[in-house]
Design a protein around this nucleic acid. Structure first.
Lengths: 126, 126, 126, 126
DNA sequence: GTGGTCTAGACCACA
DNA sequence: GTGGTCTAGACCACA
């Protein structure tokens, strides 16, 4: 469920945070369902429990999960999380378009490539 | 020409590198034209000369600029730089599309928004 | 009678203790009246009986309740409990005022808002 | 500037966070002024640098400070921080009023005591 | 068993 | 010198 790129310049805890943000905002994880325990996930990924702890603390601070003492961490029930992710998504798109303009990518090229990306993945047949 | 966001989490030297990469790949800086001297730019942005040094070293290593001992740093003449930037650009687009799918953004929404971003900005009146 | 906020950062047993403290000190629970049994309350709130046990033990230690072996837990008859709560109440008020001063809240603003809070709520129509 | 109560149930890093929140929101610390370095403050309070780090990370996440890599942590310039603190302040007041009502504290008593607290501190003479 | 806090200490990136 | 990440390990509170 969580994949870590140990070569990445992005810190481990951040990779975990971003992964869970997506899983939660997209609905892949149901509200009030329990996250893997700190120790279990640490073992699983063979990293230090403190690092997981840090990631979970961050997710709680951001409202993605809530923690129940002595029981575990649970997915928050908050519709605004999806909105928030989408907003950040469109902001990234804006940045990308700006970069594209600088590099001489036309609107048509941009849209054409994007459509290919959209289609390419889902049905690898035909 | 170079704008630094001092509050950004992105290191200063990296901001400088990326900015020059774009300026050079897009042709905004002509091949063989001279870059501002390390000291001048450091003074101008009021940051540590070592930071500029590091950015220039990186740009040289990547082939964006070449340095002439005792004279200064100059823009490389290399058509592949634009290609390289565009490739990285399309890779980013692919990542963005993946994220969009997870967040339930449809192809139509994606394309629609992208077009808005393309049109929205002030076009240099001709 | 007892409401638990499972998402609160405050431990469950503590929420239970504080709730009973108020109910008893305010006279909402009569002296010598019986508290719900540990098991019943645990079932009712669907939490671990150990947690209720711990809360009751704490209330007994503080003198709010007394326990009769084999029978159950009962509300203490002790006028000083109200005083104690009120003292702690005024201490909190002192802390709040200090904080208000730091934040630039004037005495007039403080009093004005407090009066609004006092009036705002539904008063048990008489 | 920062005082730690080592007996408190409140974690050290949280005490540090709350103290800086007040100092910053109240304007006692000027925007863009530098906070003590992680190591210096750690030494000063004789606690582990990791604990200070944690507090600073939290303050950054909340927008009270920003961190410049290799240079230090600085106070944010954001007027909404004061508002945010005041909102939380009035929420606390609301809770306190509710408690007061339960304990039989009348509006007049509440206001009277609050005024005493407001006056008591400033001029210890007269 | 669950999360949370803290220390000690190493090591890296950045300016 | 500055912050940031991570590990190892202890110890506590809670359910």
């Amino acid at each position: 469920m969580i994949i870590i790129d140990y070569q990445s310049r992005k810190p481990i805890y951040e990779q975990i945070v971003e992964r869970f943000e997506l899983l939660i905002a997209s609905g892949a994880l149901d509200p009030d369902s329990q996250l893997p325990s700190v120790r279990a996930l640490a073992m699983n990924l063979s990293i230090n429990p403190n690092t997981i702890q840090k990631a979970y603390a961050m997710l709680e601070e951001e409202g993605y999960i809530y923690s129940v003492k002595g029981k575990g961490n649970y997915v928050s029930r908050d519709a605004r999380l999806l909105q928030r992710q989408q907003q950040s998504f469109y902001r990234s798109m804006g940045d990308l378009v700006e970069k594209g303009k600088l590099l001489g990518v036309t609107k048509e090229e941009f849209v054409g490539e994007a459509e290919k990306f959209y289609e390419g993945e889902e049905e690898p047949d035909d």
